[in-house]
Every structure is written in structure tokens, then in C-alpha cells.
């Protein structure tokens, strides 16, 4: 556990860690974990930039209602808090300078 991250895991996960890529960078996340929670625990602070002003956003409600945790997976914007970690997920930040396009 990295002591400088804002979120910590209170117990060691028994799930095997699998590799996903977030904006190209490899991350090892617990298989089957809630993706938004796993990304927060891995130290990801910005999940996307808004299509209106480009402001950074991250998970807000964790229950599929606010859509602030939208990430792009296989070309589709999806709520990270409604997805489970699977091996090989290719995740990008919607609206980040690398991927500019209009939100759904």
C-alpha cells in the first residue's frame, strides 16, 4: 500500500490481480472488483474531462446515477462504477487531450 494515495484498501484482496490499461499505462487490479473503486484505490484521481469545459471529474455517487465516472472502453463510454474488472480492459479518459470527442 502506498501511504500517499487518498484511498486505501483495508484488507488484502484475495482476488488475483489482472492487468488493465488506463490511458495506456498498465495497472494491476483485483479481478472482479468494482472498476471505479479499483481505479481509485490504484491512485487514479481524474477519470475524464467534461465535454463542456474540460473540467476534471471522478466518481461521485458510486451507484450508477451521476455519470461522473464515465470512462471509455472499446469505444463506448461506460460508468466505471457499474463495471467489474476484467483482464485486458483498455480504458481511456473521455474528453482528455488524447481522446477528444463529444459525450453521449
Amino acid at each position: 500500500m502506498n501511504p500517499v494515495l487518498p484511498f486505501l484498501e483495508i484488507e488484502a484482496s484475495s482476488a488475483p490481480r489482472v492487468e488493465v490499461r488506463f490511458d495506456g499505462a498498465p495497472l494491476l487490479l483485483p479481478l472482479g472488483a468494482n472498476l471505479a473503486a479499483a481505479l481509485l484505490a490504484a491512485g487514479i484521481e481524474r477519470f475524464r474531462n467534461t465535454p463542456v469545459s474540460g473540467a476534471p471529474r471522478a466518481p461521485f455517487c458510486m451507484m450508477g446515477a451521476c455519470f461522473d465516472c464515465l470512462v471509455e472502453i472499446d469505444g463506448v463510454q461506460r460508468q466505471a462504477c457499474m463495471i467489474e474488472v476484467a483482464e485486458g480492459l483498455q480504458i481511456t479518459r473521455p474528453g482528455s487531450p488524447e481522446v477528444r470527442h463529444v459525450a453521449s
Partner: peptide
């Protein structure tokens, strides 16, 4: 980023053990 609902905090703890 870093501002969440209290309910989100509970969900992080219940489902993911993230605090």
C-alpha cells in the same frame, strides 16, 4: 475529483473495502 456523496463512501467500503 475527491468530492463524493457520503453514500459513495459507504459503497466503497461495503463493496470494495476501500476507505
Amino acid at each position: 475529483p475527491g468530492v463524493m456523496t457520503a453514500g459513495a463512501g459507504q459503497i466503497l467500503l461495503k463493496q470494495s473495502g476501500v476507505l
